[in-house]
Design a protein around this nucleic acid. Structure first.
Lengths: 114, 114
DNA sequence: GTCGCCTTCAACCAAGTGGTTAATTAACCG
DNA sequence: CGGTTAATTAACCACTTGGTTGAAGGCGAC
Protein backbone atom coordinates (compact mmCIF):
# COMPACT_ATOMS: atom_id res chain seq x y z
CA UNK A 1 0.00 0.00 0.00
CA UNK A 2 1.60 3.26 -1.12
CA UNK A 3 1.87 6.15 1.33
CA UNK A 4 -0.58 8.42 -0.47
CA UNK A 5 -3.12 5.61 -0.64
CA UNK A 6 -2.86 5.15 3.11
CA UNK A 7 -3.48 8.86 3.47
CA UNK A 8 -6.48 8.72 1.14
CA UNK A 9 -8.05 5.86 3.08
CA UNK A 10 -7.55 7.56 6.44
CA UNK A 11 -8.85 10.86 5.07
CA UNK A 12 -11.90 9.13 3.61
CA UNK A 13 -12.66 7.49 6.95
CA UNK A 14 -12.27 10.76 8.86
CA UNK A 15 -15.79 11.83 7.91
CA UNK A 16 -18.75 10.38 9.89
CA UNK A 17 -21.06 10.56 6.86
CA UNK A 18 -18.64 8.46 4.85
CA UNK A 19 -18.27 5.95 7.69
CA UNK A 20 -22.03 5.66 7.85
CA UNK A 21 -22.14 5.06 4.11
CA UNK A 22 -19.57 2.28 4.48
CA UNK A 23 -21.58 0.75 7.32
CA UNK A 24 -24.64 0.76 5.10
CA UNK A 25 -22.72 -0.83 2.23
CA UNK A 26 -21.39 -3.54 4.53
CA UNK A 27 -24.99 -4.76 4.67
CA UNK A 28 -25.16 -4.92 0.87
CA UNK A 29 -24.89 -2.93 -2.35
CA UNK A 30 -26.98 0.20 -2.77
CA UNK A 31 -27.76 2.98 -5.23
CA UNK A 32 -26.79 6.60 -4.66
CA UNK A 33 -30.37 7.52 -3.78
CA UNK A 34 -30.64 4.71 -1.26
CA UNK A 35 -27.37 5.78 0.32
CA UNK A 36 -28.37 9.44 0.46
CA UNK A 37 -31.79 8.82 1.98
CA UNK A 38 -30.80 8.79 5.70
CA UNK A 39 -28.75 12.00 5.52
CA UNK A 40 -29.97 15.58 5.87
CA UNK A 41 -27.65 16.74 3.08
CA UNK A 42 -28.16 17.08 -0.66
CA UNK A 43 -27.76 14.22 -3.11
CA UNK A 44 -24.88 16.09 -4.70
CA UNK A 45 -23.02 16.18 -1.39
CA UNK A 46 -23.45 12.41 -1.06
CA UNK A 47 -22.18 12.00 -4.62
CA UNK A 48 -19.05 13.91 -3.60
CA UNK A 49 -18.58 11.64 -0.60
CA UNK A 50 -18.86 8.64 -2.90
CA UNK A 51 -16.14 10.13 -5.09
CA UNK A 52 -13.86 10.36 -2.08
CA UNK A 53 -14.60 6.76 -1.10
CA UNK A 54 -14.01 5.60 -4.66
CA UNK A 55 -10.69 7.44 -4.93
CA UNK A 56 -9.63 5.75 -1.69
CA UNK A 57 -10.55 2.39 -3.21
CA UNK A 58 -13.16 1.75 -0.53
CA UNK A 59 -16.05 1.41 -2.98
CA UNK A 60 -16.66 0.67 -6.64
CA UNK A 61 -19.57 1.93 -8.74
CA UNK A 62 -21.10 0.11 -11.68
CA UNK A 63 -23.73 1.38 -14.08
CA UNK A 64 -26.90 -0.73 -14.00
CA UNK A 65 -29.59 0.65 -16.30
CA UNK A 66 -30.29 4.15 -15.02
CA UNK A 67 -28.83 3.42 -11.59
CA UNK A 68 -25.29 3.35 -10.36
CA UNK A 69 -24.86 0.57 -7.86
CA UNK A 70 -22.24 1.07 -5.13
CA UNK A 71 -20.30 -1.81 -3.65
CA UNK A 72 -17.94 -1.85 -0.70
CA UNK A 73 -14.38 -2.94 -1.47
CA UNK A 74 -12.84 -4.27 1.75
CA UNK A 75 -9.21 -4.41 0.53
CA UNK A 76 -8.16 -1.01 1.94
CA UNK A 77 -9.75 -1.93 5.26
CA UNK A 78 -7.70 -5.11 5.35
CA UNK A 79 -4.58 -3.03 4.67
CA UNK A 80 -5.63 -0.65 7.43
CA UNK A 81 -5.98 -3.52 9.89
CA UNK A 82 -2.44 -4.56 8.97
CA UNK A 83 -1.17 -1.02 9.42
CA UNK A 84 -2.62 -0.60 12.88
CA UNK A 85 -1.32 -4.05 13.80
CA UNK A 86 2.22 -2.61 13.66
CA UNK A 87 1.36 -0.92 16.93
CA UNK A 88 -0.43 -3.82 18.59
CA UNK A 89 2.45 -4.61 20.93
CA UNK A 90 1.98 -1.16 22.47
CA UNK A 91 -1.39 -2.00 23.95
CA UNK A 92 -1.80 -5.78 23.80
CA UNK A 93 -0.61 -7.45 26.98
CA UNK A 94 -1.00 -10.90 25.49
CA UNK A 95 1.49 -9.95 22.78
CA UNK A 96 4.25 -12.44 23.51
CA UNK A 97 7.92 -12.10 22.73
CA UNK A 98 8.13 -14.45 19.76
CA UNK A 99 5.12 -12.84 18.15
CA UNK A 100 6.64 -9.42 18.76
CA UNK A 101 9.91 -10.45 17.20
CA UNK A 102 8.18 -11.75 14.08
CA UNK A 103 6.09 -8.61 13.68
CA UNK A 104 9.04 -6.28 14.08
CA UNK A 105 10.93 -8.35 11.57
CA UNK A 106 8.02 -7.93 9.20
CA UNK A 107 7.93 -4.15 9.79
CA UNK A 108 11.56 -3.90 8.81
CA UNK A 109 11.12 -5.76 5.54
CA UNK A 110 7.71 -5.21 3.88
CA UNK A 111 6.49 -2.15 5.66
CA UNK A 112 8.65 0.67 4.43
CA UNK A 113 5.71 3.05 4.52
CA UNK A 114 4.73 4.68 7.80
CA UNK B 1 -15.26 5.85 21.47
CA UNK B 2 -17.36 8.86 20.47
CA UNK B 3 -17.94 9.61 16.80
CA UNK B 4 -15.98 12.85 16.72
CA UNK B 5 -13.04 11.18 18.43
CA UNK B 6 -13.02 8.52 15.73
CA UNK B 7 -12.99 11.30 13.18
CA UNK B 8 -10.14 13.09 14.94
CA UNK B 9 -8.04 9.93 15.05
CA UNK B 10 -8.60 9.14 11.37
CA UNK B 11 -7.94 12.76 10.41
CA UNK B 12 -4.74 12.77 12.46
CA UNK B 13 -3.53 9.61 10.75
CA UNK B 14 -4.33 10.93 7.28
CA UNK B 15 -1.08 12.91 7.21
CA UNK B 16 2.18 11.07 6.38
CA UNK B 17 4.26 13.40 8.56
CA UNK B 18 2.08 12.60 11.55
CA UNK B 19 2.26 8.86 10.83
CA UNK B 20 6.04 9.14 10.66
CA UNK B 21 6.03 10.95 14.02
CA UNK B 22 3.96 8.13 15.52
CA UNK B 23 6.33 5.54 14.10
CA UNK B 24 9.23 7.41 15.71
CA UNK B 25 7.42 7.57 19.05
CA UNK B 26 6.67 3.86 18.91
CA UNK B 27 10.42 3.40 19.35
CA UNK B 28 10.41 5.59 22.46
CA UNK B 29 9.63 9.05 23.82
CA UNK B 30 11.18 12.10 22.17
CA UNK B 31 11.34 15.87 22.42
CA UNK B 32 9.86 18.18 19.83
CA UNK B 33 13.29 18.99 18.39
CA UNK B 34 14.16 15.31 18.10
CA UNK B 35 10.86 14.64 16.34
CA UNK B 36 11.30 17.57 13.97
CA UNK B 37 14.85 16.72 12.97
CA UNK B 38 14.11 14.29 10.08
CA UNK B 39 11.58 16.57 8.39
CA UNK B 40 12.24 19.37 5.92
CA UNK B 41 9.60 21.57 7.56
CA UNK B 42 9.83 24.15 10.31
CA UNK B 43 9.71 23.35 14.01
CA UNK B 44 6.47 25.30 14.24
CA UNK B 45 4.84 23.09 11.63
CA UNK B 46 5.87 20.02 13.64
CA UNK B 47 4.45 21.63 16.75
CA UNK B 48 1.14 22.01 14.94
CA UNK B 49 1.21 18.33 13.94
CA UNK B 50 1.81 17.43 17.59
CA UNK B 51 -1.23 19.50 18.54
CA UNK B 52 -3.33 17.48 16.12
CA UNK B 53 -1.97 14.21 17.48
CA UNK B 54 -2.58 15.37 21.05
CA UNK B 55 -6.17 16.44 20.31
CA UNK B 56 -6.75 12.99 18.81
CA UNK B 57 -5.40 11.45 22.02
CA UNK B 58 -2.57 9.73 20.16
CA UNK B 59 0.20 11.42 22.16
CA UNK B 60 0.68 13.14 25.48
CA UNK B 61 3.22 15.88 26.25
CA UNK B 62 4.85 16.46 29.62
CA UNK B 63 7.14 19.29 30.63
CA UNK B 64 10.58 18.11 31.70
CA UNK B 65 12.87 21.02 32.59
CA UNK B 66 13.10 23.08 29.40
CA UNK B 67 12.01 20.20 27.20
CA UNK B 68 8.60 18.85 26.41
CA UNK B 69 8.74 15.10 26.10
CA UNK B 70 6.22 13.44 23.77
CA UNK B 71 4.85 9.99 24.42
CA UNK B 72 2.70 7.79 22.22
CA UNK B 73 -0.67 6.85 23.67
CA UNK B 74 -1.80 3.60 22.01
CA UNK B 75 -5.42 3.65 23.24
CA UNK B 76 -6.91 5.30 20.12
CA UNK B 77 -5.00 2.83 17.95
CA UNK B 78 -6.52 -0.03 19.90
CA UNK B 79 -9.96 1.51 19.37
CA UNK B 80 -9.16 1.86 15.68
CA UNK B 81 -8.23 -1.81 15.44
CA UNK B 82 -11.59 -2.62 16.99
CA UNK B 83 -13.39 -0.33 14.57
CA UNK B 84 -11.84 -1.89 11.49
CA UNK B 85 -12.51 -5.33 12.93
CA UNK B 86 -16.24 -4.69 12.37
CA UNK B 87 -15.50 -5.23 8.70
CA UNK B 88 -13.17 -8.21 9.03
CA UNK B 89 -15.78 -10.72 7.83
CA UNK B 90 -15.78 -8.89 4.47
CA UNK B 91 -12.24 -9.90 3.63
CA UNK B 92 -11.26 -12.68 6.01
CA UNK B 93 -12.08 -16.12 4.62
CA UNK B 94 -11.22 -17.82 7.87
CA UNK B 95 -13.92 -15.80 9.61
CA UNK B 96 -16.16 -18.60 10.83
CA UNK B 97 -19.86 -18.47 11.56
CA UNK B 98 -19.72 -18.48 15.36
CA UNK B 99 -17.11 -15.76 15.41
CA UNK B 100 -19.20 -13.72 13.00
CA UNK B 101 -22.26 -14.08 15.15
CA UNK B 102 -20.42 -12.95 18.26
CA UNK B 103 -18.94 -9.92 16.54
CA UNK B 104 -22.24 -8.79 15.06
CA UNK B 105 -23.84 -9.23 18.46
CA UNK B 106 -21.15 -6.97 19.87
CA UNK B 107 -21.69 -4.37 17.12
CA UNK B 108 -25.37 -4.17 17.98
CA UNK B 109 -24.73 -3.55 21.68
CA UNK B 110 -21.57 -1.49 22.33
CA UNK B 111 -20.81 -0.06 18.93
CA UNK B 112 -23.55 2.45 18.28
CA UNK B 113 -21.11 4.72 16.45
CA UNK B 114 -20.35 4.13 12.78
C1' DG C 1 -38.44 12.16 -29.88
C1' DT C 2 -39.89 13.79 -25.34
C1' DC C 3 -40.71 13.28 -20.55
C1' DG C 4 -38.99 11.96 -16.13
C1' DC C 5 -35.88 9.84 -12.99
C1' DC C 6 -31.07 9.01 -11.24
C1' DT C 7 -26.78 10.96 -11.01
C1' DT C 8 -23.01 13.97 -11.90
C1' DC C 9 -20.75 18.38 -13.20
C1' DA C 10 -19.93 23.35 -12.40
C1' DA C 11 -19.59 27.33 -9.80
C1' DC C 12 -19.59 29.23 -5.59
C1' DC C 13 -18.92 29.89 -0.37
C1' DA C 14 -17.36 29.42 4.55
C1' DA C 15 -14.35 26.95 7.22
C1' DG C 16 -10.34 24.15 7.91
C1' DT C 17 -5.41 22.63 6.83
C1' DG C 18 -0.48 22.70 6.27
C1' DG C 19 2.91 25.56 5.61
C1' DT C 20 5.60 30.05 6.39
C1' DT C 21 7.98 33.95 9.35
C1' DA C 22 8.01 36.77 13.50
C1' DA C 23 7.16 37.32 18.23
C1' DT C 24 6.51 35.28 22.83
C1' DT C 25 6.80 32.23 26.78
C1' DA C 26 9.40 29.06 29.74
C1' DA C 27 13.32 27.21 31.78
C1' DC C 28 18.18 26.64 32.52
C1' DC C 29 23.03 28.65 32.91
C1' DG C 30 26.56 31.88 33.96
C1' DC D 1 20.29 39.98 35.93
C1' DG D 2 21.21 38.79 30.80
C1' DG D 3 21.82 35.20 27.43
C1' DT D 4 20.65 30.79 25.32
C1' DT D 5 17.87 27.01 24.19
C1' DA D 6 13.17 24.78 23.69
C1' DA D 7 8.74 25.24 22.28
C1' DT D 8 4.41 27.61 21.47
C1' DT D 9 1.48 31.41 19.82
C1' DA D 10 0.13 34.74 16.32
C1' DA D 11 -0.68 36.34 11.88
C1' DC D 12 -0.70 35.31 7.37
C1' DC D 13 -1.12 32.62 2.76
C1' DA D 14 -2.45 29.08 -0.76
C1' DC D 15 -5.08 25.18 -1.05
C1' DT D 16 -8.58 21.78 0.26
C1' DT D 17 -13.04 20.42 2.04
C1' DG D 18 -17.87 19.86 2.81
C1' DG D 19 -21.69 21.98 1.86
C1' DT D 20 -24.98 24.68 -1.28
C1' DT D 21 -27.78 25.68 -5.82
C1' DG D 22 -28.35 25.26 -10.70
C1' DA D 23 -27.55 23.02 -15.03
C1' DA D 24 -26.55 18.97 -17.69
C1' DG D 25 -25.92 13.92 -18.98
C1' DG D 26 -27.69 8.90 -19.33
C1' DC D 27 -31.03 5.91 -19.54
C1' DG D 28 -35.82 3.84 -19.57
C1' DA D 29 -40.80 4.58 -20.50
C1' DC D 30 -44.28 6.35 -23.17
Amino acid sequence: MAANQVSDVFAALADPTRRAILARLAAGDATVNELAEPFPISLQAVSKHLNVLERAGLITRVREAQWRRCRLNPAPLRDLAQWVDQYRRLWDDRYDTLDGYLRELKENTDDRDQ
